[in-house]
Design a binder for these strands. Structure first.
Lengths: 337, 337
DNA sequence: CCTGGCACTCACTAATCCCGAGTGCCAATT
DNA sequence: AATTGGCACTCGGGATTAGTGAGTGCCAGG
């Protein structure tokens, strides 16, 4: 029903439209790509493609424009993933290697992706879920106030202030710290949360009230879904390409953490690339946008996701290449540190 | 040279222009504000104001528009700072009180300011400069790799990975940790940096090579100007108001840390409000924008700055009110924690 | 199944027109 | 000297019109 030539025509239409932003007609198609048939033939093919919903015309007597369905087919069957050039790969490597911090890794990744694709990049912080407790530190910072610091084996540090109703002396703090580390060190965060409940028994009765405050805060950190932190960058690229209509909608959507989470949530928990096109996106206001996302992490384990967002009319092959490459490198960096 | 009525006219022009975005003419001025004179009189006044450079006309036979100089005069002499409503103040308070983290405070402040003013908010992280060392922690996270964690008395936590060329055993680490804390605890960061140089002498010769790596990283943290971290939010508000022309320029500028720093740098090191109007801004591409900035911190001490950026045609009184109020509340929060 | 031919459509641009808000200036008034 | 009403003039912007050309659909013949 869709023979090879029709597919070729669809591909050609998409390529031209992506690069010119203008509806493409049968004539220009024929001579830009070397299809060895006449425009009239192409017109027939186009009529079929339109009937099937792969392309559409903005007005009668204008060229054709790909539909979401057209892009979908293109991504699924016609387009590969374009590998990055050696220069680009080197750039990624050196840029990411300079990071000294988890924060820094994430920030740099966003910039990198945005720059590479000239679109909007979205990156989620690596999840704490599967990391384990390396060390817990308690530091008095004011009377009746402690700072609880949790260090994980992935090098991530979580901090939280603890308000005490009554003062605890240094000795008790030391004791509490010792107990915490003895019992929780090396445990997965999820497991650790379970163990916390048993701890009061191991603490001197006199200290229990104070300890309770600390433990409850600790529990918050352990349980909290910290993977909910998401950052984005490259908004300026939106303005450059004319996202004419819904620029404001898109910007608004991007500033909502919840929306970003939902976008990334669409991507499966794998290192596979996922592409959501136009109306496939869960978020209204992003119906003119496509999102290329993937999981990343150390090795096979998916710790978080990242994505690139752009107009449906985007260079899918290139974007997918960049997303995949960056995800891999970031994974590598995370595995090392 | 500028009598009271002329000033009143200028004020009226600015008010009308800010609210309508359209050049304002003598007729509409007279009946919207109750100036008890005829349009012709106003026209004479406007001619004078124009001659002096406070207003301009986009084309012959159009109404007048304020110039940067006009806004300047308005801000300096005609406009007060509009206090927030009780509801707004309550909103600020509750919203900021929920923060549990320095990161969180900053993030929330940005959102708050952006929402309150419907413009772009820029907030700098509080400086570490004047805080002091509370605790230093060394945690092995992999062979040949340590995590160095610095906790300050303001509750801020800095972390950095340390690469070791050779392994250090746990005992040496404990020793090093003890030395670090003994010598640096309680010191201002700046002082601490000086002390670090003396530390090798206090460390067992065998451990010195490993310690050197740790110390050099520590020095970086102490010296680094961490106040250079700046975040912004509310970009969607830019698109809403028609920043017609240079939206892309503005977005690009906002995504450059350096630019943000320069913007904030213009503000003096005080809790005074600073207003930069149009071309007064140091950054090209922001010549259609105005920036209202101020320092904030615990008490009188200025730890960092924050700002709101919008079109020159902004509601200065309201924006200034919001900036001042938010800065105060944030200061309060910081002082408490 | 492909192709050339042909009539038709319609978005977009340029040219033109028209209106009215707004101006500057001047002479008369207070 | 300041204010005012009157008046001619300007000119941006919306509305209208006309022209152009890329593009289409369809058909009859190869």
């Amino acid at each position: 029903m869709l023979d090879d030539r029709k597919l070729a025509v669809l591909r050609a239409i998409i390529e031209d439209y992506v690069s010119t932003t203008e509806p493409v007609g049968s004539k220009s198609l024929v001579d830009r790509h070397n299809l060895d048939v006449s425009p009239a033939t192409i017109r027939n093919d186009m009529a079929v493609l339109e009937e099937q919903g792969y392309i559409a015309q903005p007005h009668t007597s204008a060229g054709r424009v790909p539909t979401d369905k057209g892009y979908r087919l293109f991504v699924d069957r016609l387009s590969g993933v374009k590998p990055l050039s050696a220069a680009e790969r080197r750039a990624i490597e050196t840029f990411l290697a300079g990071a000294y911090d988890l924060d820094d890794v994430v920030t740099r990744t966003v910039r990198l992706l945005a720059q590479l694709t000239r679109q909007v990049a979205v990156v989620q912080y690596p999840s704490l879920r599967s990391s384990s407790v390396r060390h817990i530190e308690l530091v008095p910072i004011a009377p009746g106030r402690l700072l609880l610091v949790l260090i994980t084996d992935t090098g991530r540090v979580e901090q939280r202030a603890v308000e005490l109703t009554q003062n605890i002396d240094d000795e008790s703090i030391a004791h509490l710290r010792a107990v915490l580390n003895a019992c929780l060190d090396g445990r997965q965060l999820a497991d650790a949360a379970g163990v916390v409940a048993d701890l009061p028994a191991r603490i001197a009765p006199a200290d229990r009230p104070g300890a309770a405050a600390v433990l409850s805060v600790l529990l918050t950190i352990l349980v909290e879904r910290h993977e909910e932190k998401v950052v984005f960058g490259g908004a300026a690229n939106l303005a450059a390409r004319d996202f004419s209509k819904g620029l404001q909608d898109v910007l608004e959507a991007l500033e909502e953490q919840v929306v970003l989470m939902r976008l990334l949530g669409e991507s499966g928990d794998t290192v596979q690339l996922t592409v959501k096109i136009g109306a496939e996106n869960p978020v209204a206001g992003l119906h003119d946008a496509s999102v290329v996302s993937t999981g990343y992490g150390a090795g096979d384990q998916v710790l978080a996701k990242l994505a690139v967002l752009g107009p449906t009319r985007m260079d899918y092959a290139g974007t997918m290449g960049a997303v995949r490459a960056v995800a891999r490198y970031v994974g590598q960096i995370l595995a090392e540190s």
